[in-house]
Structure formats: C-alpha cells, structure tokens
C-alpha cells in the first residue's frame, strides 16, 4: 500500500496483548497508543517487563496483538495471512538484536546477504549488494570474517548492515548497545543515524542505555504495558 510522507510509519491505538503463564494471565500491553513517523528515530525505554519487547514484536509483525489497532505503513498485520506477513516482514522490516543473532557458520558477507536471498535475488547480486552495505558501515576489510572472529562492535555493525541491506522502511532494534562498551555503543548509534535513518524510513530502538538517549528524535517511556510519556529531543 502506498504511504504518503504525512502518514505515520507505525500507528497503534489501544493495543493490548496478554500472555498466559501457568495459572496467571499477564497483561504485557494494556492499551498502547503510539505513532512513529517516517524519518524518525524513536527510542522505547522503561523498566524490565514493562512490555517494550512485546510492543516492538507486535509492530514488527512477529507477534499478534489481542485487541486494538496496529497499522504498519497503513497495513493491518494481524489481518494478514501467515505467508503474507512473512513476505511483508521480509520486504519492509529490518531487525537488530541484542545478541546480534548472526549465523555463526556464515561469513559477515554471507550473513548480510541473507535478507536479499530471501527476497529472491541471485546469489552474485545479493553478495554484491551485501559487500556495498558492509563497506558503508566500515567493514570492508572484514567481509570474510566469521561472527566469532569479530569484536562486539563489528558484529553489531554487521547486524545493522544485515538489517539495512534490503532497504526496509522500518527497523526495530532490541537493546542494540547493551552488549557493547560505551564507546562502541556510541559508534553503533552513529552508524544508525548516519546510515539507517532516512526520510522514508523509521527506526524504533528498545533500550535501557541512557548514554545513547541523545541520538533519539523522541523517547517513549513505558510502564506496566502502557506508554506513559513521549518526549521530543533536541533536533540533531
């Protein structure tokens, strides 16, 4: 579906999600309202267990919410079939994980080429684009390195390259700096702002790391499954 520049990338209203844990029902999201705009880096912060990860899982289309409305680029993911949703994620969503989740037996170059291969590109074309992306994140000299041969910062940059290589319109990151030292964390965020952020793209970063808050355009604070405050940051 075509999205106008004024439309929000993500639009959530009264979103709820509950889990059943043994005899108890846990309300992870209790009526979340949230909008994420194109060209914006939004950080989602809050204490552990407040529902941040559940919210980005819903927004990224890997978890269905119970009630409320959640549109991503004007698409209601909950209404989509399993395969359509998988295809939507493959085309529109990039993921960056706390533990990088790079396939340990593949080189950096091969890891970055995965999203393109999943979209059906030929291997040579996928590797060429992956090489280009790794050069953009400053890893031209580590193309053939296995994840185990990379430092934490380098591994996270490979993960960022993998999240960006297929030009998704939404990137969700779960604690991307928590496994990194302060300096490396700052550099990773610089890569995010320099490489990932664009007018037609939105970034959502879940983090506890207040050292990187200054990279956000807005910070949404969550508590007990609700957004309790949204603060705008000084323009970058």
């Amino acid at each position: 579906m075509a999205v106008s520049p004024t439309d929000p990338a993500v639009y959530c209203r009264a979103v709820t999600k509950s889990y059943v844990s043994g005899p108890t029902k846990v309300m992870a999201l209790q009526g979340v309202d949230l909008e994420v705009r194109l060209g914006e880096l939004l950080m989602l912060v809050g204490p552990s267990g407040c529902g941040k990860t559940t919210l980005i899982s819903v927004v990224a289309g890997i978890l269905d919410h119970d009630e409320g409305e959640c549109l991503v680029f004007q698409e209601d993911l909950r209404a989509m079939g399993r395969n359509s949703k998988t295809l939507f994620r493959g085309q529109n969503v990039g993921f960056v994980f706390q533990a990088f989740n790079l396939l340990p037996t593949l080189t950096a170059l091969e890891n970055v080429s995965i999203p393109l291969l999943l979209l059906g590109l030929k291997k040579t074309e996928a590797l060429s684009q992956a090489r280009e992306m790794l050069e953009r994140v400053g890893l031209a000299d580590r193309l053939q390195s296995l994840p185990a041969q990379l430092s934490g910062g380098q591994a996270q940059r490979v993960a960022i390259a993998r999240a960006l290589v297929h030009r998704p319109r939404l990137i969700v990151c779960d604690e991307p700096t928590s496994a990194l030292d302060a300096g490396t964390g700052q550099k990773v965020l610089e890569v995010f702002r320099g490489t990932a952020l664009a007018e037609d793209r939105a970034l959502i970063i879940v983090t506890h790391d207040n050292r990187i808050f200054n990279f956000a355009d807005r910070i949404a604070r969550m508590e007990d499954g609700r957004i309790v405050a949204v603060e705008s940051q000084v323009a970058h």
Binding site: A60, F95, N101
Partner: peptide, 9 residues
C-alpha cells in the same frame, strides 16, 4: 531470526 527476516516455513 530467519523467520523474522522473512524466511517462510
């Protein structure tokens, strides 16, 4: 991870 990135069953 592969599933999240768009790998079908």
């Amino acid at each position: 991870t592969l599933k999240a990135m768009g790998a079908t069953n």
